[in-house]
C-alpha cells in the first residue's frame, strides 16, 4: 500500500517535471547576472577593437580610424618588449615552481605531525598571509627588506653585507618569487592535504605489513596519492604564464628595477593609464589575453588527457 503511494507520488513528480520543463522564473533569475556580465565582461571584450584603431576618446570606439596591426608592430619593435615578456615569464614560472614545491613539501611534512591540535594550528598560521592584501604586505616588506630593515639586521648578525632586495635588479625577481611563496604556500597546501586525507588507510596498512617505514610510506604511498592533483595544478598554472602577479609587482617595483621587474601588466598600466596610450596598451592586453587563452585551452586539454580532470 505504502509502496503504491510512493510510486504514484514518483509518477506525479515525473509528470510535474515533464509538464513544466522551463519555468519562466528561472530565466527571470538569470536576467540580472546576465546583464552585469554583458556590461562588464562582453562590452570590454568588444572594446579590444581599439587595439586596431587610432583610438581617440572624443571619437569613441565606433568613430576612431582603423590602423590594422600597427600597434602590435609598434610594441614588438620596441626595445623593451622582449625584455618585458621575458621578465613576465621568468617571474611567473618562478612563482609557479617555487610555491607549488613549497606547498607539496609543507603538506608532506605536516602530514607526518602526530598531534592533531598542533597540526591544525600550524596550518592556520601558515595560510594567514594569504588573506593580506599586497598593499599591506608591500608596506611591511618594503620596510623590512630595506637596507636597514629587519631582514638585513638579521643577516648582518651573520656577517652578511646589507642587501638591497627591492632596489637591486639582480635581486628583485628572486625577492618577488620568495614573497609570493611566503604568502601562498600554506594556502596552496590545503588542496594537497585534502588529497592526502583521501588516500585509503589500507594502503598505509599494507605498506606497514610489507615493512615500509615512514619515509618509504611517504615516498611510495602519500606522494603518488597527490601526484594527480599536483600535475593538474601545475598544468593549469601554465595557462597563467603571462600573469606574473600584477598587484604584487605594482606594489613592490620602482624605476631602478624596471630592467628585471617590469612585466606585461605593469607596462600596460604605465603606458595605457598613466601616459594615455590607449590603443597600444589595448593591443598588448589583447596579445596577452590571446596567449593566455591558447595556453589555457592547451592546459585544459592536457589536464583532461593526463589526469582525467575537466575544468570546463
Amino acid at each position: 500500500m505504502r509502496a503504491n503511494t510512493l510510486d504514484a507520488r514518483a509518477a506525479a513528480k515525473g509528470a510535474a517535471a515533464g509538464r513544466r520543463p522551463s519555468d519562466w522564473r528561472l530565466y527571470a533569475m538569470l536576467a540580472a547576472p546576465a546583464i552585469i556580465v554583458f556590461i562588464f565582461s562582453y562590452i570590454p571584450i568588444g572594446g579590444v577593437l581599439i587595439a586596431f584603431q587610432n583610438y581617440s576618446p572624443d571619437k569613441g570606439v565606433l568613430g576612431s580610424e582603423f590602423v590594422g596591426l600597427k600597434w602590435f608592430r609598434v610594441f614588438f619593435a620596441m626595445p623593451d618588449s622582449a625584455r618585458i615578456v621575458a621578465n613576465t615569464v621568468a617571474i611567473a614560472v618562478g612563482k609557479i615552481a617555487c610555491s607549488q614545491l613549497a606547498s607539496v613539501v609543507f603538506a608532506l611534512l605536516l602530514n607526518e605531525v602526530r598531534g592533531a591540535a598542533y597540526k591544525r594550528s600550524l596550518q592556520t598560521i601558515t595560510y594567514f598571509p594569504h588573506f593580506l592584501s599586497w598593499v599591506i604586505i608591500g608596506t611591511v616588506f618594503i620596510d623590512m627588506l630595506s637596507t636597514r630593515g629587519l631582514v638585513n639586521q638579521i643577516l648582518g648578525a651573520f656577517g652578511t653585507a646589507p642587501k638591497f632586495f627591492l632596489g637591486d635588479p639582480r635581486l628583485f625577481q628572486p625577492t618577488a618569487v620568495l614573497l609570493e611563496t611566503w604568502k601562498e604556500f600554506g594556502w596552496g597546501a590545503i588542496m594537497y592535504l585534502a588529497a592526502i586525507s583521501n588516500i585509503s588507510p589500507d594502503l598505509y596498512e599494507a605498506a606497514t605489513i610489507d615493512g615500509a617505514g615512514r619515509l618509504k610510506q611517504a615516498l611510495h604511498v602519500t606522494l603518488p596519492g597527490i601526484r594527480g592533483i599536483a600535475l593538474m595544478l601545475a598544468v593549469l598554472a601554465l595557462g597563467g604564464i603571462l600573469n606574473a602577479g600584477f598587484e604584487q609587482i605594482l606594489v613592490l617595483y620602482n624605476p631602478s628595477v624596471y630592467e628585471t621587474g617590469d612585466i606585461v601588466d605593469t607596462f600596460i598600466y604605465r603606458y595605457g593609464l598613466l601616459d594615455a596610450q590607449f590603443s597600444m596598451s589595448a593591443a598588448i592586453g589583447l596579445f596577452k589575453s590571446l596567449i593566455g587563452l591558447a595556453l589555457m585551452l592547451a592546459a585544459n586539454w592536457a589536464a583532461a588527457r593526463f589526469s582525467d580532470y575537466r575544468v570546463l
Binding site: L30, P33, A34, V37, I39, F40, S41, Y42, I43, P44, I45, G46, G47, V48, I50, P57, G60, V61, D265, I268, Y269, G272, L273, F278, S281, A282, G285, L286, K288, S289, L290, L293, M296, L297, L312
Partner: peptide, 26 residues
C-alpha cells in the same frame, strides 16, 4: 548555451584599458 555565456568571460577578457574606457563612458 547559457553556461557558455557565463564561462566565456572566464577565458577571455577585454583587459584593463577597455574596462577603464567603459567605466569612464558610463
Amino acid at each position: 548555451l547559457i553556461v557558455g555565456y557565463f564561462i566565456i568571460p572566464m577565458m577571455i577578457s577585454g583587459g584593463l584599458i577597455p574596462m577603464f574606457i567603459l567605466i569612464s563612458k558610463i
